[in-house]
Structure formats: C-alpha cells, structure tokens
Design a protein around this nucleic acid. Structure first.
Length: 483
DNA sequence: ATGTTC
C-alpha cells in the first residue's frame, strides 16, 4: 500500500488527513499528519504513512491516529506517532511505545555563560566522556543487587535521591515526578534485570548523547524567565532511555501479546501492531512492566546527571553547586490521561512513540513556577545542529492529545548514512566550528550525521506555527558525548 | 533503540 498525495486532504495549514474512506475495511478513525508541505514530501518517502494508516485500525482508538512532523518509520508504529485508545477496554500495543521504553530528554541549567567556559571545553568534553559510560552494551560503576533493582523499578528517580546520587528538588521537575505508581517489578523478567543491573548511569548508543549547549536566542522572554533560561547561559542536555532492560521488557511482552491476540479476537493489518485490551491480563502485565522500565529510565537519567555534576565540579571547581534540573520529559511511553474528543472528555491510554507530552498552562502536575508557562518541551536537533526549548499549549490538547514532536527525525537509514558520511572528516568539520565531539566509534558519528536527519528548524517551525507548542529558546552545541 | 539473530 503506497500512499499518494491524492489520498491526503489538507485540513488547514500544517494539518493533513487521510480519511477512513481510504481503507474503510479497517481504519476506525482518520489518520492525521502535522507537517509543512516540504516535510510532508519527505515523510512520503518512507513507510511512515502506511504505518500511520495501520495504527488507525487499533481497537478502541479515539479521534485520529497522528504523526508529528519529525516522523519516520519504526517497529509497527511510526516514530513520531501518537495514538489514544479508550480506557479500559481499548488496545495497549507495545509497538506504540517502542523498544526503548521511556527514552527521553532532560535539560540541566548552569550558572555559567558561554565566554566563561570557552577555554575549558576540551577538558570538559574529556571529563564528561570519562565519567559517563557510553556505547553499546556498556556498563557503569553501579552494580544493582536484586533487592536494589526492585527498588529502582518501583521508585524510579526517587531511588537516586534516596541513595544520595541526586537532589530531592530534581523530582518536581521530572514528568510524573520520575515515578509511575503502576510499576510492578515482578513483571520484569530476570533476564531484563540481568541486562540492566550495571546499566544505570550509562547513555548507550545510537542517537543517545550528553551535550553541552549555550542559549543562542530567546523567543519568549516571559516563559524563558519562568524556566530560568537566559541568553548566553550554558546548559546540559541528556538524551537516553532504559537501555537493555527496557529493550528486554519490550521483547518479552511483545512475544506474549502476539500469542494472546487471537483469544481476544483482535486482527491488525501488521503483526508488529500486536495489541491486547488494556484491561486484559496480558495488557496489564505489559503496562505494569512498561511502568517499571520507565522508572528505570528516569533513574538512569538521574544517575547520568550525577556523573555530569561530578565532572562539572571537577572542571569548574567543587564550590560550584550547579546544573539544576529544568525539566525531564519522556518520549517513548504510554500514559493514562483525560482527553476530550468531540466535546466528550474521558480517560484514555495515550501511546507516545517519539513524541513528547506538551501540556499547556494550568496542568496541575506541573511545578508551580511553570504553571502559567505550560510544560517545557525539549527538542534536541541532530548532532552539531541546534536544539530548542518550547512550551506546551492549550491548543495541543485540542489537536494532538497534548503531544509534540521529539527531535529532528531521521530521513536516512543508519546504513544509508554510513555509506554517505566520512566520519573523521565530519568530526573535524564540527571541531572547526567550535564543537568538541567525544564518541566511542566513528560508526556512531556517521549514523548520526546531520545529513541523516530532517531540518530541525523546519520541524520546530511547524509545531510552533500549528500552535501545539510555542518557541521559547534556541540552543547551540559546544560539546557532544556519544556512544 | 538493542549483549545489532537465544
């Protein structure tokens, strides 16, 4: 099934729709695309839209299946996708969350400015690289006993605080306070726990990174002030997830759910969309295991922050009590949330895969000082390009179930990128532009080259212009640490 | 994304 332009209707600027009449035999709702004309052309080159149409067939799906402007194809669901299903009988589908459960990003703020750190960048990049293990299969300095693993899976970021690795004030600035109460560690397999036991405080590989940036431009002074952002300020960006543990949770439960579908009479057009009713035994077991893996990921980002703070103190002096958490947002997760479709409000299971939550002003979970501004939305660009901070809006609740894009989004496969990119040359090029790259392998650099990604500016302009989030600040990189 | 095919 190849989707052509003629199948897509323009609803309004930046919003497109494939109606249910395209595949009436299985689309339960329309499929919607948030994109500029340019990005839509790019999106049509891979299988993203075919996958988006498939998602519209999920049992109990509400409103529309949706993709953000950074969408690209993934396992079953497109990455950059949002699907809300009715609670409690609608589908839960692990493919709608992805293998890297609670992959997410956090932003830490320093009190230093660009000029002050300039001379220390070489030392800083090496200290960060040495303190934060990166790369495929890499372990860290903490080895969790099975008792402690249980505590991490149960308590998330809170565990890091209880062990003295983090400040209690961090917790208020993490989505869901870094802990999903539904987590049940007993539903995480022994094998998943084994894979994860030495992975706290490690970034992994692929698009995961730790980056030092400075704030290049402020677009909205009021919101920037509420978030604590100033022009020229040095900040730290961390992007990673639940590592091998979350991957194993997804693997284990996808297998179980594939085997259970038939007994619930569920038929989906792609086996990678495997799903069961949320309130079924298999659905609950997956969801509770997913929550535990999400907690592991939050604890992981907390431990990486601890390592970064340690490296920071070493370079800038131990008297610097710096790097305060601005916010930590998940972009691969399912959440139970109240949303409104056609004027009727109800509880839904919101699957976000490569999409961040972007709740508007007044949302009670927000820290008090962000209440009027709305939820911070952190959007990393590709390596060496810029990143953005935006704020969620009331509008996002109307069109995207309170969601926004999560990054630049791939446009070339990893294999295609490796063919096109000369990694040592790229590293030199970035260095000549003042960007220090510390990476475990040239392979990683080639796969993450800017040419392999969409234009982050175009993606951010799209979400800003469509009103689902509002631009607050632009970040430019100085140091990139990768696996 | 991932001890990149237990």
């Amino acid at each position: 099934m190849k989707i052509q332009k003629e199948h897509i209707n323009k609803i309004k600027d930046y919003l497109w729709e494939i109606p249910t009449s395209f595949r009436p035999q299985y689309m339960n709702v329309p499929a919607r695309i948030l994109a500029s004309e340019t990005l839509l052309d790019e999106i049509m080159e891979d299988r993203s839209l075919a996958q988006l149409v498939n998602v519209a067939s999920l049992p109990g799906i509400q409103g529309a299946s949706m993709v953000m402007p950074d969408v690209h194809e993934g396992y079953g669901f497109p990455i950059g996708g949002v699907a809300a299903t009715s609670y409690p009988k609608g589908a839960i589908s692990p493919g709608g969350i992805g293998y890297d459960i609670n992959c997410g990003v956090r932003l830490l703020l320093s009190s230093l400015n660009r000029e002050t750190v300039q001379e220390s960048l070489g030392v800083l990049s090496r200290e960060l690289y040495n303190h934060i293990p990166s790369g495929m299969g890499k372990g860290g300095s903490i080895l969790l006993s099975s008792r402690k693993m249980h505590e991490v899976l149960r308590n998330g970021a809170e565990w890091a605080v209880s062990q003295g690795y983090a400040k209690a004030e961090d917790l208020r600035f993490i989505e869901s306070n870094g802990k999903l109460e539904m987590a049940d560690p007993r539903l995480v397999s022994e094998r998943a726990k084994q894979r994860g036991k030495d992975q706290l405080g490690t970034i992994g590989s692929g698009n995961h990174f730790v980056e030092v940036d400075y704030i290049d431009e402020i677009y909205n002074t009021n919101i920037a002030t509420a978030y604590g952002l100033e022009c020229g300020q040095v900040v730290l960006l961390i992007h990673t997830g639940s590592r091998g543990l979350g991957h194993q949770v997804a693997t284990d439960h996808i297998k179980i759910i594939m085997g259970a579908m038939e007994k619930y009479g569920i038929n989906v057009p792609d086996r990678e969309l495997a799903c069961v009713p949320f309130d079924s035994e298999e659905g609950q077991n997956y969801f509770r295991a997913m929550c535990a893996a999400a907690n592991f990921a939050w604890c992981n980002r907390e431990l990486i922050s601890w390592e970064a703070r340690t490296a920071w103190a070493k370079v800038f002096g131990s008297e610097v009590d710096d790097l305060h958490l601005m916010y930590d947002v998940a972009h691969n997760i399912a959440k139970l949330e109240e949303h409104s479709v056609e004027g009727k409000s109800s509880l839904m299971i919101v699957h976000r895969k490569g999409a961040t939550r972007a709740f508007g002003p007044g949302f009670p979970e927000l820290p008090e000082k962000y209440l009027k501004a709305g939820q911070p939305v952190i959007i990393p660009g590709s390596m060496g390009t810029c990143s953005y901070v935006l704020a969620g809006t009331a509008r996002s609740m109307e069109i995207t179930f309170g969601s926004c894009c999560h990054g630049a989004g791939r446009r070339l496969s990893r294999t295609a990128a490796k063919k096109q990119v000369n990694a040592p040359v790229l590293k030199e090029e970035l260095r000549s532009r003042g960007i220090y790259v510390e990476a475990g392998s040239f392979k990683g650099i080639a796969e993450e080259a800017p040419v392999a990604y969409k234009d982050i500016n175009e993606v951010v302009e799209t979400v800003h212009a469509s009103g689902i989030a509002t631009k607050v600040a632009k970040l430019k990189p100085m140091v990139v640490v990768k696996g």
